[in-house]
């Protein structure tokens, strides 16, 4: 299954993250996972929220450059060596990972790893075949 990730472009200025998170809070949007990629003068904020469509509309509506991207969320056991097993799968299949970040799912005591890959369908098929569960939300 596919997760709809929302990402926005940000200049590296003080208070920009505070503004953005306050905006989401005000609209009652819950952040499930979040990551920032930063360079010397700009950053990209990537997030998985409980309401992706509303998040996208809200951010665009407030003048930000935002986009929606298909990413894969894989549930893995929360103990040592689990991420290494998944990474080995991607390596053996020759699938390049553009980036990843993680979140903990308390209800199931699982970790959810968010993967951005070029070959989405192939990755999903590989993960299912290897006994992993992919989620559309968490």
């Amino acid at each position: 299954m596919i997760i709809k990730q929302i990402s926005i472009f940000m200049e590296n200025t003080t208070g920009r993250l505070a503004e953005t998170t306050a905006l989401l809070a005000g609209a009652g949007i819950n952040l499930r996972a979040i990551s920032i990629a930063d360079t010397a003068d700009f950053g990209i904020l990537r997030m998985v929220t409980d309401k992706p469509d509303e998040t996208l509309a809200l951010l665009r509506g407030s003048g930000m450059t935002a986009r929606e991207t298909d990413v894969i969320g894989v549930e893995v056991q929360d103990h040592p060596g689990e991420l290494a097993r998944v990474m080995a799968l991607f390596r053996d299949e020759g699938i390049n990972i553009e980036y990843l970040y993680a979140s903990l799912e308390r209800k199931k005591e699982m970790a959810v790893i968010i993967f951005k890959v070029a070959l989405v369908e192939k990755s999903l098929e590989m993960l299912t075949r290897s006994g992993y569960t992919t989620v559309s939300s968490f």
Partner: peptide
């Protein structure tokens, strides 16, 4: 950075 040129991957930008 408008949506037409925005990417979620830093390398692309």
């Amino acid at each position: 950075v408008e949506e037409a040129i925005f990417s979620d991957v830093t390398g692309t930008l």
